[in-house]
């Protein structure tokens, strides 16, 4: 019923196309539609805040074929903004247990005009979706239609955020896969590992995946 709006195809060397869109909702929609109709020869589909990068294997797909495929999918009808239904393959879903004990929880809740308990309720009630990944292997940027807040980053980033920390920044939630520096406001600690280097698929989260958080006993 809706279109993703104009998709601008930009060159990214001889083996990739960068598709630029108006915003994250359009990115989620187009990335989902591309993923659902992905031909062999597409090596990588990398959504970001306003773009989808499509990398191809030139032995199996030409750049012209890839562009025609992207333009066809972008022009086609789809189920709606950020649609999780429609013809797309069913999204994977994950339940992540969290101890909501982060050092920034109380101050952030106060800044948002609620109690810590209310913030935890809103966060666990919201259905989250992995918009894109980045920053570190396994780090997913999660968005939710039920999370309208715009959380500022810390003015001075921490030099060491422990692995498993659940942080908030802008419209996003994210779980740190390993200890890194970081400027997100920390509200808890996930019991579920989001990155296991020795697993066959080390990263738990992929773009399009659905995520719910569940408060575990402190």
């Amino acid at each position: 019923m809706s279109r993703a709006g104009p998709a601008r195809l930009l060159p990214m060397g001889a083996r990739a196309v960068l598709v630029e869109l108006d915003g994250l909702d359009e990115v989620l929609e187009l990335a989902g539609a591309l993923q659902a109709a992905r031909p062999p020869g597409v090596v990588d589909l990398v959504p970001a805040a306003r773009t989808v990068l499509v990398q191809i294997d030139l032995d199996r797909l030409t750049l012209a074929q890839a562009r025609a495929w992207i333009e066809g999918v972008a022009a086609g009808p789809r189920s709606g903004v950020g649609g999780s239904g429609g013809a797309a393959a069913p999204a994977r879903s994950h339940l992540i247990d969290v101890r909501y004990d982060g050092p920034d929880l109380a101050a952030l809740a106060a800044a948002l005009g609620m109690t810590s308990g209310e913030l935890v309720e809103r966060h666990t009630a919201a259905p989250w979706r992995v918009a894109f990944t980045g920053f570190a292997p396994g780090f997913g940027y999660l968005v939710s239609p039920a999370w309208p807040f715009d959380v500022p980053r810390l003015r001075a980033p921490r030099t060491a955020v422990p692995a498993g920390s659940l942080g908030l920044a802008a419209e996003f939630s994210g779980v740190y896969p390993r200890q890194t520096p970081g400027g997100w406001q920390l509200i808890g600690t996930a019991a579920t590992r989001v990155f296991d280097p020795l697993a066959a698929e080390p990263a738990l989260l992929a773009p399009g995946d659905l995520v719910r958080f569940r408060a575990a006993g402190a």
Partner: peptide, 29 residues
């Protein structure tokens, strides 16, 4: 820019104007 996908060999230009070519371990965005 808002972060966007990168490829090996991308010639990024930071505000200094001096280009950096991303190689195999470069950031993915």
């Amino acid at each position: 820019l808002p972060s966007e996908g990168m490829v090996v060999g991308a010639v990024q230009v930071p505000p200094s104007g001096l280009p950096t070519v991303l190689l195999a371990d470069g950031p993915v965005t």
